[in-house]
Design a protein around this nucleic acid. Sequence first.
DNA 1: ACGTTTTCCGCAAACGATTTAAATTTTTAT
DNA 2: ATAAAAATTTAAATCGTTTGCGGAAAACGT
Lengths: 336, 336
Amino acid sequence: MKPSHITIKDIARILGVSPSTVSRALKDHPDISEETRNLVKTFAEKVKYRPNALALSLRKQKTNTLGLIIPEIVHHFFSSVISGMEDLAYGEGYHMMICQSNENYYREVINTQALLDHRVDGLLVSISKTTKEFNHLQTAIDNGTPVVFFDRICDEIETDRVITDDFEGARVATEHLIECGCKKILHLAAPKHLLIGKKRYEGYCHALKSHNIEIKEEFTLKCDTREEVLTMRQHLLDIAPEIDGVFAVNDSTAIAIMQVLQQNGYKIPDQIKVIGFGDGPNATIASPPLSTVEQKGYEMGREAVRMLIQRLENPTAPINYQTKIITPTLKKRSST
Amino acid sequence: MKPSHITIKDIARILGVSPSTVSRALKDHPDISEETRNLVKTFAEKVKYRPNALALSLRKQKTNTLGLIIPEIVHHFFSSVISGMEDLAYGEGYHMMICQSNENYYREVINTQALLDHRVDGLLVSISKTTKEFNHLQTAIDNGTPVVFFDRICDEIETDRVITDDFEGARVATEHLIECGCKKILHLAAPKHLLIGKKRYEGYCHALKSHNIEIKEEFTLKCDTREEVLTMRQHLLDIAPEIDGVFAVNDSTAIAIMQVLQQNGYKIPDQIKVIGFGDGPNATIASPPLSTVEQKGYEMGREAVRMLIQRLENPTAPINYQTKIITPTLKKRSST
DNA sequence: ACGTTTTCCGCAAACGATTTAAATTTTTAT
DNA sequence: ATAAAAATTTAAATCGTTTGCGGAAAACGT
């Protein structure tokens, strides 16, 4: 900031009027004569005057900045969320300050504090896996900074939320396999203590039940990473002859099991159909391209910002917090 | 901000001292007696006083905020860059304001302006594909806001830069194939008018030359997407019997050709070895896992921020702009 | 007892803008 | 010509913080 920016005071001094006149002239206040207004505006244009957002924020008690706390940036889903947020925020005249917690509670707290120090108008938060205490966020709300949770929500705090309908996604995926003729469907699941593990398992069960297919306990395996598939390779191959479909809790697991099966002579989708969940970019490059359930990250980001801005711009509205559920959609490709 | 945050003035009023005393007490100014200092500090602690970053920035003429303009957020490489930037910035007490240009020149200009309005201390920029004019950035520099370019640099502007050594990456990749015994190496290339297309092609040629391998024109094909591989499928299969290695300009192209070859009975890496470039998450889930050249996005992000902060904190240092070249490293997996 | 240091604290200006209220000038009415 | 009304403009306070300078009170020296 060496040749520091030109200010309203500078213009006032040079033009021989008062700063208040300049301020009013620039925003077409009716008190200012046309003559003065033109003089000021022309000059401001000439010297490329731009108001100092800092001073404005301080004065207006509004920063037009949204704070985002996200577990990791390098993650297809999360970066899609950020993208959606940034796009909508930009369109509405807001900016984004972004912090990543790296799944670290302590850092999440520091980040919250820093964003609050910067007087962001609102907070968008997906809580880290290690966060068990929520005082930092409750305090923010209590002090008048609205918070919207997305994806990794927190039940302990009452506020707006946006989540994916994991149950429905899993149900649709499983149903799709059934409609393709599968009757013996293996589910590679995330741990039950994780919400996504639980919800997706329930969706799987629900689909089977409503088609009168027996739910066999041995057809649900805790296995949610590529590595785990490789570790369990033999067990999976032992089960393989008894199944005709696989619903994996995420795409990389789905792709891994496709590969294991293919390497052992199974034809996909002819003998066994496979469907994943998440639709990262992996799904399309798999061979065959993987059918999966599209988790709409971009849309979730937009929705979260929409809810937040809605609240910011209607501060007097009655506080009836909402939970927006985004239903993922089936992406049918060639693996089913 | 309803129950608006407590300020130094509030504390001063409540404690019956002046704001200046509170300010000084809080920062252990020697002019303040121990008694007063403790009084103030204890009280500030009790009411959880936090300085208003806005007011501080205005006063200090320093925001401790870095502005980032990036073409797209949803992109493995770019999101890695952001992650590296955020991590280092956080460690150095800076925050990040992030804007995506969506490869749109107009939006890039608006974003630059907005970040400048917010008085970011410096700018980190990867220019959009549609940007041909650079006045917006030159102006920023001229007005005293340092700019660091990363990845997509701009030759017209003199400033600090961080780039990937595409030539070297391609050379190493090709050399690796040669060391694995390949003698007839196909190169799937990006268009020559793109810098990466040109540099990577040159690296490929250099490696061949230094091993006295003839450079055959028909062994370099313009083909840099998965779709293009599928379109050229037949032509690629016609060439296949004559080659024993493929160096693809990016991972998705490499994976696509692996699949085409495998579907036609070629064994990888036994008959034909394949190497990619980029190392997104795709490489590891391919089958076999793809050898590739790791483009260090995270490191590039850190380096860009390091250079920027270096300049911010040594404003008097002589201006000798640097271009930091990040050498990508070979990631050997099973496809070679 | 009086001048000189020290110690400690507050005033006021500044950062860049907005806005209320007051002051000035100009216009209109009588 | 003069008061009242209308049209412009400006002064001053405010947002929350820092900081140069000055001032009062206490401690010190002689």
